[in-house]
Amino acid sequence: MKLVGTERVKRGMAEMQKGGVIMDVINAEQAKIAEAAGAVAVMALERVPSDIRKAGGVARMADPRIVEEVMNAVTIPVMAKARIGHIVEARVLEAMGVDYIDESEVLTPADEEFHLLKSDYTVPFVCGCRDLGEAARRIGEGASMLRTKGEPGTGNIVEAVRHIRKVNAQVRRVVNMNSDELMTEAKLLGAPYEVLVEIKKLGRLPVVNFAAGGVATPADAALMMELGADGVFVGSGIFKSENPEKFARAIVEATTHYKDYKLIAEISKELGTPMKGIDIAELHDSERMQERGW
């Protein structure tokens, strides 16, 4: 019997993206550039995170027309963002046939207490995390893919580094624990016990974990792979740079060959100015997107 929307089908989709780069795009033209550069998927948005920051106000799901335009422009998978806890935005994106939904802190949360019950949907979800507790709660709700949060739209990698190191250190700790220690660890992390049992059994997270937020150069992308990411999301970094086509290609190559430093040197030459960065310390607490999610 044919089964759709199973855990294996949803998680498997993310497995196929491993080692790749997922790029934020706001129209068909950018989507085509991303596809031609070797992106494994695109994230269709109304504004990239750095512009969401500038615009201020409430950031919502993109205009379905933009999502549709991007879906028609490329053959690679198309992702789109729904607000945290916004059941209807997620259902609308699912009905449109989006390949993956990002329940994203980049948008203004619709619910400050509950995330979506993602296991209820046929479409798979990716969610952000800053530590293993958050990661495991999202998996518990049915997320099929994770991305460690950075501080989106800043072009500053420091938060992404902090969070991938933290999640991976906590995963290693769980893997090396005795089984009788897992329940207390679950309590301390605020993590579902069953997810920790699965992590210990597999020796890794049970879903793919990409890095996101603040990737601005090929070396940044390679750094995230070095630190154990399964792949990289690049938001504002590409289309806010001087030469998006060249930049996109270089980021894809650096992600694949993250240990080939001579090659990274070569592809980083004369890339033009990357996006202008923001020092995280200059952001007010209310401007920090990473703290959204519970």
Binding site: L3, V4, P77
Partner: peptide, 24 residues
């Protein structure tokens, strides 16, 4: 992706009830 599925296949020369995951 919402149409991706899994099913069991009978495969000539290989066997029956082989799980097959179809993703896009």
């Amino acid at each position: 992706q919402v149409d991706s599925f899994e099913v069991e296949l009978s495969i000539k020369n290989i066997g029956r009830n082989i799980p097959a995951v179809f993703i896009r």
